[in-house]
Design a protein around this nucleic acid. Structure first.
Length: 120
RNA sequence: AGAGUUGGCUAGACAACCGCUGUUUUUCGAAAGAGAGAUAGAGGAAAGUCCGGGCUCCAUAGGGCAAAGUGCCAGGUAAUUCCUGGGAAGCGUGAGCUUACGGAAAGUGCAACAGAAAAUAAACCGCCUUAUUUAUAAGGUAAGGGUGAAAUGGUGCGGUAAGAGCGCACCGCGUGAUUGGCAACAGUUACGGCAUGGUAAACCCCGCUUGGAGCAAGGCCAAAUAGAGGUCCCCGUGAUUUUCGGAUCACAAAACGCUGCCCGCGUUAGGAUCUGGGUAGGUCGCUAGAACUGUGUGGUGACACACAGGUGAGAUGAAUGGUUGUCCACGACAGAACCCGGCUUAUCGGCUAACUCUUUUU
């Protein structure tokens, strides 16, 4: 039930561009998400970790994995496309603190969804 | 025992649960797909992209110039700026280590400060001679002083007014001969006579090497839209002409939209099908390789050859992870993206081999 198959990911450039151009920006410290309601049954996640923000490949992999892992465990997400951008300083955080930060972001997204998308 | 030199190996372990990517088996399903099981899944540097190749596409008669690279000798290799062995110079008590190590008597240039002078020589102090006005001038000198990273071979003896390769001996340097060596080079010897300061990662000269771009290379399949070409179908009416197939000219009509209809206005000048190019997308390239392990043979060695064995990442918004528990030496640097061979840089520790020096004991 906590799976993360290809259905739940953003797979190509067009998906990302759609979310960037018409999605809602929701930001916390060091993490920014673009969110857009989609027409699928499931939420979908994409992660952007730029080389400029996180220089080392090992750290980039670690952050991507943590974000995916938190997304996988968090099964109450509505059907939205999310693109998360990671900023510098994240690689210095330990795993439990990083997880707290991500969950905080998820909660903000759910609040936004409750307010604007559920009624329409 | 301590200190050190050079190489090699290793890169936390185990368990449980939840996930990801590839392959494969199987169940359900018309298919798309879904479920279950099995199995494999980052490195010694995967890094920097600094060299060299394979591979792919483009270019290409041959030669020269330019540009870039490179530079002791011999060998190894697919190839190299790599590696091995040797030589030379320097460092270290030593094991060993370091070296961009062709040419400065072809030319041009450069050298802060200090110093008299930084190079077709020159003369501050000093030393010596002569002259006289006795502290000056003229001349000789490169031994001594001081400066500097560097000062026109070094040491000794002779010689001299004082000195000086001016002469001699030894060392150094150059040239010739000869011995050893494939060679770099080394040894011996004869002669020369001190001429040729340094700097070539300054220009330069000499020898040698080099076509360009890179897997986002490149090959194949290929929707939609627009455009290109071919074939077939359709191609109104009237007039003229006619060899009765048709040709030419003129006029219109049709479809769609604005409005249900008419007028009017606007748009389209047709339809079907095929072909090639080609975008999104897919797929191949994509991992069996100048590879790895072991043994033997040849070689001082790099390496080569033979035999045997196993073969186990391949993603593409991009997998190899998360949580918990136990143990210990408490875990560094760090993440594949076409593939190999090197180099360089980063790195917590642990294990191991050979060798060197010092001390102690026997």
């Amino acid at each position: 039930m906590h799976s993360f198959p290809r259905k739940k990911r953003l797979l190509n450039k067009h998906d990302y561009e759609k979310v960037f151009s018409s999605g809602k920006k929701i930001a916390t410290f060091q993490l920014t998400a673009f969110v857009k309601k989609n027409s699928h049954e499931l939420p979908r996640l994409g992660v952007v970790v730029s080389k400029r923000q996180i220089p080392r490949a090992v750290d980039r992999n670690k952050i991507k994995r943590m974000l995916r892992e938190c997304f996988r465990k968090h099964d109450s997400m509505p059907n939205v496309d999310i693109v998360v951008l990671a900023y510098k300083g994240l690689e210095k955080l330990s795993n439990p603190i990083l997880r707290e930060k991500v969950i905080e972001l998820w909660k903000k997204i759910e609040e936004w969804y409750e307010k604007y998308c559920k009624s329409s």
